[in-house]
Amino acid sequence: MTAEAAHESGQIQAGRGEPLVVLDGVDKWYGSLHVLQDINLTITRGEVVVVIGPSGSGKSTLCRTINRLETIGQGSITLDGQPLPAEGKALANLRAEVGMVFQSFNLFAHKTILENVTLGPIRVRKQSKDDAEKLAMSLLERVGIAHQAQKYPAQLSGGQQQRVAIARALAMEPKVMLFDEPTSALDPEMIKEVLDVMVDLAQRGMTMVVVTHEMGFARTAADRVVFMADGAIAEENTPEEFFTNPRTERAQDFLGKILKH
């Protein structure tokens, strides 16, 4: 086991099951649109939560409030017991603790793959270039992109770019990883390579919030499914129960639609 992996599993396994991210009575409005309605959600250390629901139900917004890319109107969000800071250096530090993977990858277009992964460790964690590159190469190795380290994002396929984006987030050694539809922009043949990396991450004990409609991933890796509809959490259950035996009519209706195809 590498030093990095030992460090990671050691840290993450310790305290497994304690609350890590707690949303308490969270409300958010866009103008008159009540986009998040009284969200209460506790994510424990090491837990993998899949968020599912119709388009426009507020899944992305929920995800983005957890690293404060979106502000909230009411309620509170804590990470590891600390309320999210409102602004400035403290907010930047919080974001360094929360990894985020976007639907559209968002790799820095003017930087090489290696530079994409080392930017945060060097500029935020103040690591030396050498240390940052060593860490980056081990992560790129893990996601299978090490041999492309000197290329630019545009030279990689979507699936490869998304795996780099995961490595970039992991390089900050985050406490929790947020994934907002990480495979929705990918061609079908590339979805698996990204999901494999995510399943591996889940098995190593990473705390994850994953917005996805990939039922296979939810069944293999998730501890819990949260179903959102119209800005509210309509149902929460284990993946098995949720997919075979949804309780609410909204969920039955939604699953009926996605299962038909």
């Binding site: 690293n67 890319l69 400035g88 250096k89 930047a92 530090n93 919080l94 974001r95 360094a96 603790e97 929360v98 990894g99 985020m100 976007f102 559209s104 968002n106 790799l107 820095f108 277009a109 930017l119 945060g120 500029r123 935020v124 984006a165 970039r168 987030a169 900050m172």
Partner: peptide, 17 residues
């Protein structure tokens, strides 16, 4: 694209960075 700045903020860079 706005995603570039969002990804940069998400890894903990401050506004100046």
């Amino acid at each position: 694209p706005v995603g570039q700045a969002e990804a940069a903020r998400a890894i903990g860079l401050d506004f100046g960075q």
